[in-house]
Design a protein around this nucleic acid. Sequence first.
DNA 1: ACAGATTCATGAAACGTTTCAGAAGAGCCG
DNA 2: CGGCTCTTCTGAAACGTTTCATGAATCTGT
Lengths: 339, 339
Amino acid sequence: MVGIKDVARRAGVSIGTVSNVVNRPHLVSEATRTRVLSVIQELGYVRDESARQLRAGRSRIMALLVLDLGNPFFVDVARGAEQAAHGAGLSVITCNSGQRVDTEAAYLAMLAEQRVRGVLLSTVDTEGEGLDRFRRSGIPHVFVDRKVPGDQACSVSVDDVAGGELAMRHLVEAGHTRIAFVNGPTVLTQCRDRQAGVDAALASAPPPQRHLSVLDATGLDVASGRDAGARLLGMSPRPTAVFCANDLLALGVLQAMVTAGVRVPEEMAIVGYDDIEFAGAAAVPLTSVRQPAVRLGRTAAELLIAETESTGEERQHEHRTVVFTPELVVRDSTRVRRG
Amino acid sequence: MVGIKDVARRAGVSIGTVSNVVNRPHLVSEATRTRVLSVIQELGYVRDESARQLRAGRSRIMALLVLDLGNPFFVDVARGAEQAAHGAGLSVITCNSGQRVDTEAAYLAMLAEQRVRGVLLSTVDTEGEGLDRFRRSGIPHVFVDRKVPGDQACSVSVDDVAGGELAMRHLVEAGHTRIAFVNGPTVLTQCRDRQAGVDAALASAPPPQRHLSVLDATGLDVASGRDAGARLLGMSPRPTAVFCANDLLALGVLQAMVTAGVRVPEEMAIVGYDDIEFAGAAAVPLTSVRQPAVRLGRTAAELLIAETESTGEERQHEHRTVVFTPELVVRDSTRVRRG
DNA sequence: ACAGATTCATGAAACGTTTCAGAAGAGCCG
DNA sequence: CGGCTCTTCTGAAACGTTTCATGAATCTGT
């Protein structure tokens, strides 16, 4: 593999000069610069980033570790992060843990060894071994979609308690009294918070008393939603409304209802969460709690960039905690149609 | 930042020994090994991968460069690739070009500088500057979802011509004579091939003559599909069936139809492509051409691993070209319902 | 007790860059 | 012409690992 030495020899200059041509072209005379560049072209020289990084000390890569790329919500987060990162001349690499703690830990270890410039974290783990070790590695990081005490790290999130409340209040106000909540794995703070919102909404609701059934789904995907839907169908008395922790779950529940011939929303109202693009295109367009996903990713990346820059120059970095507010988007799945 | 030296000093051994503890533990006595490990633990030492890679010569990262993560098809491809890569002890990083040629070129350059172990390529570019330079860098790579002559590189793809033919023949057999084809950007070979399949199906169809309108969408996403749907609605005489190069386009077209009150499939039959999970959950479940996405990714990664291993030991590597066959999944969007 | 194996630890070279102090030459001023 | 400054280039020292030849110490069998 051709290295900087080969270029130097061939162009009849020192390796320092070649390096300057690549990194600080203004320090090199027009003549030598073009000569060196043409040799680089000719030999197909590609700088070895590991050597560069070893010496220069910093990487130009920002990583994004997400819970599940199968959820379009996180794809939007990634989009936002890329916008901001590219603006700052950084490349973004995405790592998908698929909500597996061990995969997540493996990625965290890899990113730490890689000495990435910074990492955007959306992890399952909140205080396990893997995450802990990573945090001690000293690599700048920002939590995405999880609120974290401001003295520990920056974080950008959406108020999940408020979101859960929004959804449940909507169902309560529509007059439902037997309501189900299909929650995802409660190891996820998002799921716990949304449930807290649900509970709060019910606690503050005016009489009469509502009955809430909580169904725990095994995952946050469409298949788990179908399972939950089947269980829902078997209940008696059957709830008349269901709030799902996630649009994917909601889509699965919806499929189960459609297949079983249960009319939505007349016999079963459904509310999802995230307002992914496919929610509005579903068999029955889904009412959902919208989160500003792209903005979440962009803001997180901006915070991360600010942090990596500040730690270099000033001594101090003040962690920031940004919390966005979710918004309810009402569609047919909870709206009894006229006519 | 704590390095191998610090560990060595603190444990009272040489740096070579520390390295052995980490990489070839069997060469180190039980006693020193545990002592060194506990120091590593205590100091929170994390190996610097750039130094390691510089010396050891090879990375342990496989990259996947995809056209568009917003398309669940590619997320499935990524899933498959991860399965195979993890099996071989490699980490996968995903880079999303979003179909922008310049972003793509930037990622390719980054991956080359990074001296990644290998790259799975799903690019817009087929013979541009960026891709060319990357290929000359000598990093092993396998083309995913694009067939490439076997003397150039390995590739794993699905027969897009056959897929296009499958879809169009289905519409012809259902008796449609005014048919539209909503195609994506024709810079993509996938789109060109699917169109070729469409043409072939029409050419070989028995009389009467069919009329085909080709609409070029600006992207391969839902929004572009809505645009195309609007154009479709404005045509007169309006086609009675439409085949979309992509499920996302199809979902957009479907939305436009539903919004305009055009009944699907009675007034407008729709066929999509990819059979993403959301296709079956759509307002009207979509007929679609299914591709084995996960298998595509897995096979490609396996080929890549084989290539990286063979070039090390033997001198020869025989490029392989794998082509899968797509399959038509018929759903309500083309099936006139009984009753 | 001794040669030969075996086990374990060491020290230094190498990997391909970046960076920096300084040399060489050119241009300018008095 | 001597002393400046400027521009341009050089050579060597780092960066933090891995790896390998070498050496010291212990074990094995006779």
